[in-house]
Design a protein around this nucleic acid. Structure first.
Lengths: 226, 226
DNA sequence: CCATGCGTTAACAAAATGTAAAAAAACGCG
DNA sequence: CGCGTTTTTTTACATTTTGTTAACGCATGG
């Protein structure tokens, strides 16, 4: 799965590269619009991330040019507050729209969503199923016995993260970094509270899995069969 | 599996060496940035731990230099409170971030996580198996005949440590240093109590191994067949 | 048979977690 | 923009679990 990033700010471009490579993408960077269009031809990416503010040829023009030669999904990147541009971008053939500064999770989620619309999803890990339980991060839904359970986003993200690697222990700080974000600065007891609320929602659902405390270490999503 | 530590404070560097060697890493230390970059080339480590505050060339510069020549995973080490720097570090190509003072558990967990992302996880080392017994430090589980035995962390860590080097004798003070931590000051009889409780849990499980007292010296995890 | 080291137990202290409720922040809506 | 609502975070306290110490008696070795 290949991703092309068209972005003149090196720091942001490299940050995107890190996020994407962690997700298993092969990444190529282009620092201006012309190069970007060129790479769109020769590299034939599966997805394009395109900054609006570019030197020489702006994002809109690049978007138009790429659309002439390819149906590759395009996600536009823009500075905060320019909401009006959204419509313009979508008219020109962009598939989604993201505001800087963005979070890795958000970005990845959108990329997955766009790719799915194109039927190209990368071996999706966005939906997990366990006995009587479904965690669907595409719809942000928690489902028990086919019945939706109203769950706030953070709780769901935490559960999803733990359930992504069953039986593996995560420390509170790990969870804060990986679910809340690297730059989050807060009390690690916050995790406890979310765990408690998840347990309330999930108690007595199944004996094949459970949210377990590993005393002195952290939490894990424990499965029986494994 | 090789680890490079770039850190000017000798105490911290040596502490890291102990932690890492305990986990089976081959460790090399570099006291400043230049040497660090040099070692990154010649030693070709599997992971780099990099302090931000370094004399001559600071951590950011070192990170950048290493990134030019290698894709080796880098974990940045920093003093507490400098949260903003997290983003900077990640932009420059670091893979994770740790705040001093750190705990051995946390550090090891993060290293494992980063290596896992790179698909290089040292599978060996975290899970030990002996006749009818499994010690799994990823899940913090002690398993006898496929059945989990509830075990407090310290006990499990002690057992794991002893079983990591079967038939090797450890003195109580060694165990206190290596399991409890070099900065622990307490009665060495504490070890006895933990050993006793482990023996309770493990008695009559197998005749192929045993927790043996070496009179006047300490303890060892003795195996028969080996 | 004495001095020392070890096993064992129980009680205590310390640390980590569970829980509930309040405060703060984010969100949706008119 | 201000309001009420929901979500998230913090705080404080109760509870549980674990770690440590101290005491006593047995085992070991000289």
């Amino acid at each position: 799965m290949k991703a092309l990033v068209i972005e003149d700010d090196v720091n942001i471009a490299e940050l995107l590269r890190i996020y994407l490579e962690k997700e298993g993408f092969e990444v190529r960077l282009a620092a201006d619009g012309e190069k970007g269009v060129g790479e769109a031809k020769s590299f034939s990416p599966d997805i394009v991330l395109l900054d609006i503010m570019l030197p020489v040829m702006d994002g809109w023009a690049v978007c138009k040019s790429i659309r002439k030669i390819s149906k590759v999904p395009i996600i536009m990147l823009t500075a905060k507050g320019e909401t009006a541009d959204k419509v313009k971008g979508l008219e020109l053939g962009a598939d989604d729209y993201m505001t800087k500064p963005f979070e890795s999770k958000e970005l990845i989620a959108r990329i997955r969503a766009v790719l799915r619309r194109y039927g190209k999803d990368a071996a999706g890990g966005r939906v997990l199923e366990f006995d009587r339980l479904v965690i669907n991060m595409d719809a942000y839904e928690l489902i028990v016995d086919g019945k939706k359970i109203d769950t706030p986003p953070k709780e769901l993200e935490l559960l999803f993260h733990l359930a992504s690697s069953p039986n593996r222990v995560y420390t509170r700080n790990q969870l804060l970094d990986e679910v809340w974000g690297f730059d989050y600065f807060g009390d690690s007891r916050t995790v406890d509270v979310h765990i408690k609320r998840l347990r309330e929602k999930l108690e007595n659902v199944s004996d094949k899995w459970t949210l377990k405390t590993v005393w002195g270490v952290g939490y894990k999503f424990e499965t029986a069969g494994d």
